[in-house]
């Protein structure tokens, strides 16, 4: 007999409302209960990871991949420009605001996660490798 490949999840299940998230402190929280401080504190104690602030500069439909949106960020103190293509329902965590996506309606349908509308000017939580001294 042959083993069937495991079905790939349609959506990342860690964004599903009720998903259990482990912080770097060991504390467990539901994804919908996370707050900015949880990410900041986790990065502080994780060692090797650093929280960056990523400012949303532009949001537009992806030209290479129809159905996705291209998010243009400036990242960190260096304000490096980074562009990523994501589905419109993909949630980002905005400092002081919480979960936000380009399509809160789709996020609610697919994940059950309440979101704000992600907009240009929002400051998202992102991570990067901590630079060694």
């Amino acid at each position: 007999s042959s083993l069937a490949p495991a079905p790939a999840p349609c959506n990342p299940s860690h964004f599903m409302k009720g998903a259990i998230i482990q912080l770097a402190t060991g504390e467990l929280k539901r994804v919908e209960d996370l707050q900015t401080q949880d990410f900041v504190r986790s990065a502080e104690v994780s060692g090797g990871l650093k929280i960056d602030s990523s400012l949303v500069m532009d949001i537009r439909g992806s030209q290479q991949r129809p159905g996705l949106v291209s998010l243009h960020f400036t990242v960190g103190e260096q304000q490096s420009k980074v562009t990523i293509d994501v589905p419109p329902e993909h949630p980002f965590f905005v400092f002081g605001q919480g979960w936000s996506s380009c399509s809160p309606e789709r996020t609610a349908q697919l994940y059950g996660l309440a979101c704000h509308h992600l907009q240009v000017g929002d400051m998202c939580v992102s991570i990067t490798l901590q630079q060694q001294p």
Binding site: K81, P91, F92, S126
Partner: peptide, 25 residues
């Protein structure tokens, strides 16, 4: 009796994007 199912636990860093600033410049 229903056996309790193991609940998946996800690490916090799986929720936020890893955005590596470019080293150029």
């Amino acid at each position: 009796n229903v056996e309790p199912r193991s609940v998946p636990v996800f690490p916090w860093h799986s929720l936020v994007p890893f955005l590596e600033p470019s080293q150029s410049g």
